[in-house]
Design a protein around this nucleic acid. Structure first.
Lengths: 133, 133
DNA sequence: ATACGTAATATAACACAGGGAATAACGAAA
DNA sequence: TTTCGTTATTCCCTGTGTTATATTACGTAT
């Protein structure tokens, strides 16, 4: 099992940071973690394996998929139970489009952050490690 | 006590959303909640009252202030103990500058979100309420 | 019919961030 | 020297969100 998308390592370099996501009728519809999950489902063909590859409980992974499917006009993930291998999950065409859309947004956002950080400077940050007092 | 900045009401309209913040050596240095807290401290001259106005425990408010002061080259909040009224807290010049800087970033970010939402459409969202199945 | 591995769902156990209480320190003013 | 309200600090405890575990449903292939 590939481990390219396990837990954030909590990178700690000073600077401008941010997150973007798309809200739906119930709250978050698409965000960074959900997109990674979709990509892992595409790779493994299984919610179980996708979740494990991200060190995410099956329950959480399933809830995210369910949330996306319920808020989208048509499901992003099609899951089947039973059958050969017990079933599985695959991305729909809309699922693929969601991934593409989000990465476009993400790229624009990274550009925005870099430009903003340069123009506004973000000057007032202590660079060294913290001192006790 | 004014209540203009109590708890978020969790607005739920579909669309592009996001948050930005500035990281320091220990993690978050400046973010939306911290800026509001700074403004409330400026208004009330007290960490205690500022925290209460945001329905935030004094402990939490103090930790945020401490975190900002430790990560900044010079304190954003100057607190004094004792004296008439028991003491208090006021913003430093750097504290004022932090507020200004963040709101500039915030304004640019809102503009970015609006523009991005328009150009990329954000099409695949169910508008009506959720159905059980 | 049986086996198999996953989806789907329910229940129990757990971790921990944060709240609240309690206490000490503080120093100007009366 | 007493009072007063705040800052500063510690400790306990609980709510809640998460994980872990268990159970059921499912359907194709053998």
């Amino acid at each position: 099992m590939k481990k390219s998308h396990q837990k954030k390592k909590e990178i700690l370099s000073p600077g401008l940071r941010g997150r973007i996501w798309i809200d739906g009728a119930e709250g978050t519809f698409l965000g960074y973690g959900r997109i990674i999950l979709l990509e892992q489902i595409r790779e493994y063909g299984s919610i179980t394996k996708a979740g494990k590859s991200m060190e995410m409980s099956y329950r959480h992974a399933w809830e995210l998929v369910d949330s996306m499917n319920r808020q989208a006009p048509a499901p992003l993930v099609a899951a089947v139970t039973g059958g050969k291998g017990g079933g599985g999950a695959r991305l729909t065409e809309d699922g693929e489009k969601a991934i593409d859309l989000f990465w476009k947004l993400h790229a624009d956002f990274q550009t925005f952050l870099a430009k903003e950080e340069k123009t506004l400077g973000i000057p007032k940050i202590k660079t060294g490690k913290r001192s006790k007092n």
